[in-house]
Amino acid sequence: MKAPEQIMRVVVTGPVGAGKTTFIKTISEIESIDTDRRATDEMAHLKPTTTVAMDFGRVTFGPNMALHLYGTPGQERFNFMWDILLRQAHGIVLLAPAHRPKDFFAASRLLRYARQRAPEAPLLIAATHSDLPQAWPIADILPAFGIDASESQIPTLSINATAERDVARTLIALVERYAERSNAKRIAS
C-alpha cells in the first residue's frame, strides 16, 4: 500500500510583479493554474497581465510529501484573497522584486500581514529578479523592510524566479524550516 502523502500548503505572496505566478509556473509538475487577466490600471505598462484570484501548482517532495503552491494576487484590492490563502498556509514564501526598490514598502506591509494571519507558518524572503543588473543585494533589502539582518531569524535568498534551480532551492529551505519547527514542537509536547 502506498504511504499516505503529507501535503504542505505553501503560499507564495509579494507585491505586484514580484514573480509569484512565474515562481509557481517554473516549478509545478502539473500545468499550473493561473487566473491572470489583462492589466488595465497603472501597472499595465510594467506587465500585460495580473493575477486576480490565485495561482496553483504542485511539486512532489521526496517519497511521501507533496507541496501545494498557492500564489496570491499582488494588488492591494485583492487583499481578501491574501486572507483566504494565508489562513491555510503551512509555509510562506514572500517574494520581493530586487530591481524595484519602490515596491519594498508594499513587500514589508505584506510581510507584516502574513505574520499576523499565519503566525505559526515558517516564512522566508526571496528577492526575485536578482539576475538583473539593477537588482539590489539582499543585504540592502532587509533594512529597507525595517528588519535588522543580523538579528532577524528570517532566512533570505536572492533568486531568479524563472530558474527552476532557484525556485527549488527556495522551497527546500522552506521545507527544512517547516521540518525543524515540527520536530521542535514534537519534542516540546
Binding site: 493554474i33 487566473t35 487577466r37 486576480v52 484570484a53 484590492r77 485583492f78 481578501f80 484573497m81
Partner: peptide
C-alpha cells in the same frame, strides 16, 4: 464599490477556470 469590483473579478476568473478544468 472597490471591494465588490475586486471580488467579482476574482470570482469570475476562478469560476471560469474551474469550468474549464
Amino acid at each position: 464599490e472597490e471591494r465588490v469590483a475586486a471580488m467579482s473579478a476574482a470570482m469570475l476568473a476562478l469560476g471560469e477556470r474551474i469550468g474549464r478544468e
